[in-house]
Amino acid sequence: MKTQTAKRPAAPPRRPPAKLWQLRLYVAGQSLRSRTALANLKAICESHLPGQYSILVIDLLKQPQLAKGDQILAVPTVVRQLPKPVRILIGTLSNTDCALVGLDLRAAG
């Protein structure tokens, strides 16, 4: 994780600064896995996209009908709504390398 933060200065010039990242996190209940995923996602966003992201947490146990829209099978799932194209990342995001590839935050490197 530390190695990734070193790349932070290189990232901003690549992206237009006004761009807002819209992320959705699908979970099923407030399990340990759900909490871990949210914490990991927040940490990644804070370190890579400070101030230009929003996270919407959707609990499928409360809103099961929303699972269909984003074709959710596994939880936790992160769906990158914006910027396009839509990207899907599943898991607790404990493996940051994979998470960054999944969210397309490492492509610059």
Binding site: L61, Q71, L89, T92, T96
Partner: peptide, 22 residues
């Protein structure tokens, strides 16, 4: 249920509760 091979990135632990819910 749409599954596009290779479209989904994985990181860490997960389960199929989403499918169960659906």
């Amino acid at each position: 249920v749409h599954i596009e091979p290779g479209e989904i990135q994985e990181s860490g632990d997960y389960d199929l509760e989403g499918l169960f819910v659906r």
